[in-house]
Design a protein around this nucleic acid. Structure first.
Length: 500
RNA sequence: GCUCGUGUAGUGUAGUUCGGUCCAUCAUGACGGACUCUCGAUCCGUCGACCCGGGUUCAAAUCCCGGCACGAGCACCA
């Protein structure tokens, strides 16, 4: 039997190991007519690491299917999570940075109010929505008991006149709400005559006090998804009931609901969750210096530290779409980034806690002269050399000097005694530890700022002063990756810690 | 309470649709080794998992039943 198989179909005998699937799984539903996705943040702050999943996944699907992404600002709340005017531009920029291209379409819910109000009126006139004047508590009790509220039985004309009063500003906040008519007996209490629009008199930062009635997310989003021809909605599974609510609304309008996909909640060990309002509060309380504070999980902070957009994309795409609630480590994201940048990142020497040693080279022969060349990257993946002018003094880290017998990388074997050191050999003579160092004249003062336990510690040292470029990430030998953020004429250069 | 969802190594993830190709994939991590004039990179190796209990079956991560755990929604927030 086996012999026969070997003859006929040798591949059938091979045990093939299962492979891990790469990339995102296929989108469900019909994708032949093109796909339209959307990313819909609230502009109440800049984008966080949490948002980056939405940008990465949606833009990647758009790339794979040659589709479009709508960037929609869900800014219909003026009280609880009010928009920050600057955040619209921040987010558009951050989207472009992360996705690698600008969003195909950008819209603001606050600019589209007439569309929502018109649909609300149609809904009320059609009898599948009504104005409810119950208080939120009393409605909550009725919903709990599966009982109709008194407003439910009103005819459309009465609701319509209430609707006009709401819009005219003749009702106070909390006096009325527009509900979508479902069934009060639905098993899922979340779906029973859910609220679609409410009164807000607080002025909107972008459109002022023109509107007195504003849609809630479930209604606004439902209408707009249909208006924009969204084919697939990728969102957190906390919004599963939104899908169910909106599907009921779509049935009233006779529309077809987009294909929904979900992801679970994500936490990062080092940061916890990603609450924009929480961060805003801590910034206002002075606990953080701003949205770009390197201790914050904002895209701005990550970008400032030197993370590549592609690394973040790699990470989220590798994670894929699962509904499991997960808690990941920054180490994993850092590994993706290190992989992306290592081969193209130049090396530099940064000596912390420097001690200055004067070199005595009387003993050694084969002195290489007054200059040495060190590769910009040890693997040669960055071409070129760092040229070091040598003098009589060198700087090494105190802890390294304390070892006594060390090798100055690429230069000389020395033995330290006090403030001087004897050069024993320029070639490598034994297996003594190799340390990073600097000729004194090649060093310029610098501070490396790194977050630790919620505060930022700054380590002073000497940074190799060779072709330094602000904004560039370097790998500090035996220290780790860091971005050069400032290079002032006077005073220490500023380095921001990236990762190992 | 009602409703919905999820449970695969330390952390994530593939496989679950159509049971056998799975002594369960890959990454990350830890540990060890090789190489390297970085504590980096590269290469090699080791460690480590199918939530629990029943059932069906020759065969269950996969199907069925029952538990348990965790998360979410039930906001006039998004």
């Amino acid at each position: 039997m086996r012999a026969e198989l070997e003859q006929a179909a040798p591949e059938a005998l091979k045990r093939e190991k299962h492979q891990k699937a790469v990339g995102l799984r296929e989108l469900p539903g019909d994708t032949s007519q093109g796909v339209v996705l959307r990313f819909a943040p609230n502009p109440n702050g800049p984008l966080t690491l949490g948002h980056s999943r939405g940008v990465a996944i949606n833009s990647e699907y758009a790339r794979v299917y040659d589709g479009k992404v709508v960037l929609r600002f869900d800014d219909t709340d003026t009280k609880v999570k009010p928009p920050i005017p600057d955040a619209y531009d921040w987010i558009a920029d951050e989207y472009e940075w992360l996705a690698g291209n600008p969003a195909d379409i950008v819209i603001r819910a606050s600019d589209r109010m007439p569309v929502y109000l018109e649909h609300a009126e149609r809904m009320i006139a059609g009898g599948f929505g009504y104005v409810c004047r119950c208080s939120s508590v009393s409605f909550r009790n009725l919903r709990e008991d599966k009982q109709d509220c008194p407003c439910r039985g009103k005819d459309a004309t009465e609701s319509l006149s209430d609707w006009k009063a709401m819009n005219a500003g003749e009702m106070e906040e909390g006096d009325a709400v527009v509900r979508v008519r479902t069934e009060m007996t639905l098993p899922n209490p979340a779906l029973r005559d859910w609220p679609a629009l409410r009164i807000q008199h607080a002025p909107h930062p972008m459109v002022g006090d023109r509107y007195k009635v504003w849609p809630l997310l479930d209604f606004q989003s439902a209408i707009e998804d249909h208006e924009q021809g969204i084919t697939h909605i990728v969102r957190g599974k906390d919004l599963m009931d939104s899908t169910r609510k909106q599907t009921l609304l779509y049935e009233h309008f006779g529309w077809t609901y987009p294909e929904p996909l979900y992801w679970g909640r994500v936490k990062v060990h080092e940061f916890g969750g990603f609450s924009t309002s929480g961060m805003r509060a801590s910034i206002e309380a002075g606990e953080h210096s701003g949205w770009g504070d390197t201790r914050l999980p904002t895209l701005r902070a990550l970008r400032r530290r030197g993370f590549r957009a592609q690394s973040l994309r790699d990470f989220w795409i590798d994670l894929g779409l699962t509904q499991k609630d997960i808690s990941i480590s920054m180490q994993t994201i850092e590994a993706f980034n290190a992989k992306r940048i290592d081969s193209s990142t130049e090396r530099r020497s940064f000596v912390r806690e420097p001690v200055i040693l004067s070199l005595d080279s009387n003993l050694a022969t084969d002195n290489p002269g007054s200059r040495i060349s060190v590769q910009k990257h040890p693997g040669g993946t960055v071409e070129g050399f760092r040229e070091w002018n040598l003098g009589d003094s060198v700087a090494v880290q105190a802890a390294d000097a304390a070892v006594g017998s060390i090798r100055l990388k690429e230069y000389a074997d020395i033995t330290v005694s006090g403030e001087s050191a004897a050069v024993e050999s320029y070639g490598r003579s034994d297996d003594r530890p190799v340390v990073h160092w600097l000729p004194l004249e090649m060093g310029r003062e610098a501070k490396l700022h790194r977050p630790e336990d919620g505060s930022i510690i700054s380590e002073s040292g000497l940074l190799e002063d060779f072709e330094l470029e602000v904004g560039k990430v370097y790998q500090l030998e035996r220290v780790g990756f860091a971005k050069l953020e400032e290079l002032p004429e006077n005073g220490p250069a500023s380095l921001l810690w990236l990762h190992r």
